[in-house]
Each structure stands twice: as structure tokens, then as C-alpha cells.
Nucleic acid binder design. Structure first.
Length: 420
RNA sequence: GGACAGGUGGCUGAGUGGUCGAAAGCGCUCGCCUGCUAAGUGAGUAAGGGGCUUCCCCUUCGCGGGUUCGAAUCCCGCCCUGUCCGCCA
């Protein structure tokens, strides 16, 4: 959600910025509706003020025992009351229209974000580590070593799911624990373990609803949805709250399973566990002061990179172009890890500065000093990291001549072994 | 799932039809006093929206409806919290 004042005062700026994302924002429609809404709001206010005056007078007359005069005053209210009802309906109607329009506006890209429409126009800003070549892909490796059972997974739940078995299951658990511990111990995050189901309202707060309902799993019979990422429950943690400046920035790290319908996705890029309907992920979420949010974005990226470096995996960092970064972000970096067996890079993290977009939707604010007006916080998040794709990179990178997998040093204590 | 109790400002908590957007206390801000004090004292202190913007108006007492000239207060529905019972990993 954008600042209404910004749209009113700089309609052309909003149009142009939205256009960089390839979105034709209905700014003119918004302005028209906004005018109607403000007119209705204003008239309703005046009508209410009049009614309040009359009511107050009646109260006073009653208090003085002047019942007849009070009754006389009462008789004048009928018309006004009807008018108020009409104006209320007007106001409500325009307000609803306004909300509907507002929710279709994308967040505006930061000036430092490059132009572009397609993934090809994203800019590689960094590469780290050595690119290992030639290897079996992870599905072959996993079957060889008995780490993942795809056949039985599809029997139980259908396609797009995996059953991790033996040391495969343990590797998943090791990665989760390692990543969480790392972020808490080295980068100052606080661990939270949120629910995996959330209400519609929470999904509106993060911008997943109303536009992206078809990407989500909905529970029949309840207003509950399976989360597509921990971003949803964690961002909503402080909904409708005014945060303490002293505690900022808030840095939270959460592990959850994530559920995505991935409707339409199929083919080579879904092989194995590259894109499953359920996967595990560590999510990093930060609530920060507006003036620091771009510095915080950079450090969020390095926090996520730390994991890849600790595991010694080759990766690159992309700065996404305006057209490829999605609706909600202002600036977004993707971390892509090299998967030798697949022969391509896999996205393991997407670090985004949303500025006040989500804070406005979820009403999360802070106060600079006692007595001052609350302001919206800036919210950022990024994966730290997605487990299955990380596991792919690990298996494919650390496969040795004899077919076994060398476990990187930081994971050994979690695995209880240095080789699979 | 059943029964009962309750949801009020940053917090505690009073308020059962009319100057109540709301007593009191805590906290906080500014000032005074006191030669040291986690003391005393005075004033201020909710949010959102709108306007003819040193001031005024509207909305908000869990949420949504209703009754009424007027609702924190009465009625209906829902949500949430607590306690007890039942059930259960």
C-alpha cells in the first residue's frame, strides 16, 4: 500500500514508477474516487456535527426538565438522520473502491534499481567461490545414497512432494539447526517459531492477498491458510502496534515449512526438490528506521551470504531489475547458489526492502520520541536460506569420486558424521 | 466441544443511556520546590481522518449490526482471553 498523500500530490511520479514494474497503475481512477470519498467524508462530518449539537442540546434541556422543548428538538432530527444514512453509504462505498484500487498498486522501485522487464536484465553484482563443474544431479545422488524417496512421496501426497529418508532427513534437520544457530549467534537475530497457518488478514498485511490467492493453500471450513513463507506470520507479529524505538531494529529469524501451490510450474526446473509444494526455509525479517533501511538491506544480504560462505558454496548475487522483482518490493537482491549437477544457479534467497509498504498494510509503527507522531517502520526480509535448494547445491558440489558426500565442516557436529 | 467470567488510552483500572474520548493510579514530557533522595508539587500526555490549520470538526472504549434525538453503557451476531469440565498429540 502506498501513501495516499504521495498519490494525490505526485500522481505522475507514481504512474511512472509503477510503469517501471510494467504495471499501469489506475492513478486517475484513484484520484477521482478519492475526490468523491473526501467530499462524502467531509459532508458526513458536518452532518454528524450538526446531529451532535442537537443531541447535546436535547441532553441539556432534559437535564433542566424542559421536556417539551426537548421533544420539539427531537422532531427536527428525522430528516438529518436520513441524510446521514445516505452519506454513510456513500462514504463506505467510495472507501471500499479506494481500498480495492489501492491494493492493486505495486510498491515503487527505488531509484538505484535498474530498468528492465525480464530476468535477463537483472544485474550480477557479486560472485563468490569457485564454480565446480560436472557432477551427477541431486536426484541421482539422492537415490544412490537413499536420501530422498520421491516415489513414495507421490503415493502419499501426489506430485511435487518429497520424503527425506535416513541421512537425507538428518541433513535437512542439520541445515535448519545450523542456519538458525548461526543467525542467532553471529548476526544478532532473535529466533521465533511461528504458526504455519495464518488468517486472511495476515496475508493481506504482507500483500499475498487479495492478488495471489491462487498461489496459496486454503483450509476448508476455516479462515486459515498454509503459509507460503515465514515472512507472513513474522511480519504480522507486530501488526497494529507501535514499536519501541529503543528496541529497533527488530531482527527476527524463523524456521518454518512453507507451502506453495506453484500452479503452472512444470518441466525441467522442477526436477527433484528444486520446486516442491512444501519446503523448509529460514526467514530473516527486520523492522528498521526508514533512514537506515537501505543499509539494513545490504547487511541482510551479507547475513544470508554468510551461510553460503560458511558452507563453501559458489554463488552469485543479483540486483533485480524493476520489472522482475515483483509487486511488493522497492529493491531486491537474489542469492543464487551454483548447482553443478543441474548446471545452473538456483535461487536460495530473495532479500527485499519493502520500505513502508507492508507496515502501512499491517499498521506497524514506531515513535521517535514521547509525544511525537508515530511513523511507519520499514520492513525487510530475506531467506536465510531455503533448505532444499541448498541441499541440492551441497550434494552436487561435495560429491566425491567414490560417490560419497563430504560434509562441510560447520555441519559435521549437527550431522554426527563428516561423510554420507 | 460445554459452562461461567471478561475484553476500556503506553500499562493497571473505574465507568450501566446525555458536557465521557473517558475518573484514579503507573509510566512519560515540561516546569517548580528541596543542598544530596527511585521524595514532594503544578501542568501536559490515545490514534486515525478532514478543514477556513496557533484553532475547529468527524470517527474510534474487541469486531460487525441494531434500538435511540443521543450508546463504553441496552439488544443481536461474531472474534479473542481467562477459569473449570470434557477430549486429545
Amino acid at each position: 500500500m502506498l501513501d495516499r498523500k504521495l498519490i494525490r500530490e505526485n500522481p505522475d511520479f507514481v504512474k511512472e514508477a509503477a510503469l517501471r514494474k510494467g504495471v499501469v497503475a489506475k492513478v486517475d481512477e484513484f484520484l477521482g474516487t478519492d475526490t468523491l470519498w473526501r467530499k462524502a467524508t467531509h459532508e458526513l462530518g458536518e452532518a454528524n456535527a450538526e446531529m451532535n449539537r442537537i443531541s447535546k442540546t436535547i441532553g441539556q434541556l432534559m437535564g433542566q426538565g424542559k421536556k417539551e422543548e426537548a421533544d420539539a428538538a427531537k422532531s427536527q432530527t428525522a430528516e438529518l438522520k436520513a441524510r446521514i444514512k445516505e452519506l454513510e453509504e456513500d462514504e463506505r462505498f467510495h472507501e471500499a473502491e479506494l481500498c480495492k484500487l489501492e491494493l492493486t498498486f505495486p510498491n515503487l522501485p527505488h531509484p538505484s534499481v535498474p530498468d528492465g522487464k525480464t530476468p535477463e536484465e537483472n544485474v550480477t553484482v557479486k560472485e563468490w567461490g569457485d564454480k565446480v563443474l560436472a557432477s551427477k544431479n541431486h536426484t541421482e545422488i539422492a537415490s544412490e545414497l537413499g536420501l530422498i524417496d520421491f516415489e513414495r512421496a507421490s503415493k502419499v501426497t501426489g506430485s511435487g512432494f518429497a520424503v527425506y529418508t535416513g541421512l537425507g532427513a538428518k541433513l535437512q534437520r542439520a541445515l535448519i539447526n545450523f542456519m538458525l544457530d548461526f543467525q542467532v549467534e553471529h548476526n544478532g537475530y532473535r529466533e521465533v517459531a511461528p504458526p504455519a497457518l495464518v488468517t486472511s488478514q495476515s496475508l493481506v498485511g504482507t500483500g499475498n492477498l487479495p492478488k495471489f490467492a491462487e498461489d496459496l493453500y486454503k483450509c476448508e471450513g476455516d479462515d486459515l491458510w498454509l503459509i507460503p513463507t515465514a515472512e507472513v506470520p513474522v511480519t504480522n507479529l507486530y501488526r497494529d502496534e507501535i514499536l519501541d524505538l529503543i528496541d529497533m531494529p527488530y531482527k527476527l529469524a524463523a524456521y518454518t515449512p512453507c507451502f506453495r501451490r506453484e500452479a503452472g510450474a512444470a518441466g525441467k526446473e522442477t526436477r527433484g526438490i528444486q520446486r516442491t509444494h512444501q519446503f523448509d526455509k529460514i526467514e530473516l525479517v527486520k523492522y528498521v528506521l526508514p533512514e537506515w533501511s537501505y543499509e539494513e538491506l545490504e547487511s541482510l544480504v551479507t547475513d544470508a551470504e554468510d551461510i553460503l560462505q560458511a558452507l563453501g558454496l559458489h554463488y552469485r548475487v543479483l540486483l533485480l531489475c524493476a520489472g522482475d522483482m515483483g509487486e511488493k518490493g522497492c529493491k531486491c537482491y537474489d542469492l543464487e547458489v551454483w548447482a553443478p549437477g543441474e548446471g545452473r544457479y538456483l535461487e536460495v534467497s530473495s532479500c527485499t526492502n519493502f520500505e513502508a509498504y507492508q507496515a502501512r498494510r499491517s499498521n506497524i509503527r514506531f515513535r521517535r520520541a514521547p509525544g511525537e507522531k508515530p511513523e511507519f517502520v520499514h520492513i525487510l526480509n530475506g531467506s536465510g536460506l531455503a533448505v532444499p535448494r541448498l541441499m541440492i547445491a551441497l550434494l552436487e558440489t561435495y560429491r566425491q569420486e567414490d560417490g560419497s558426500i563430504l560434509i562441510p565442516e560447520p555441519l559435521r557436529s549437527y550431522m554426527g558424521t563428516d561423510v554420507i
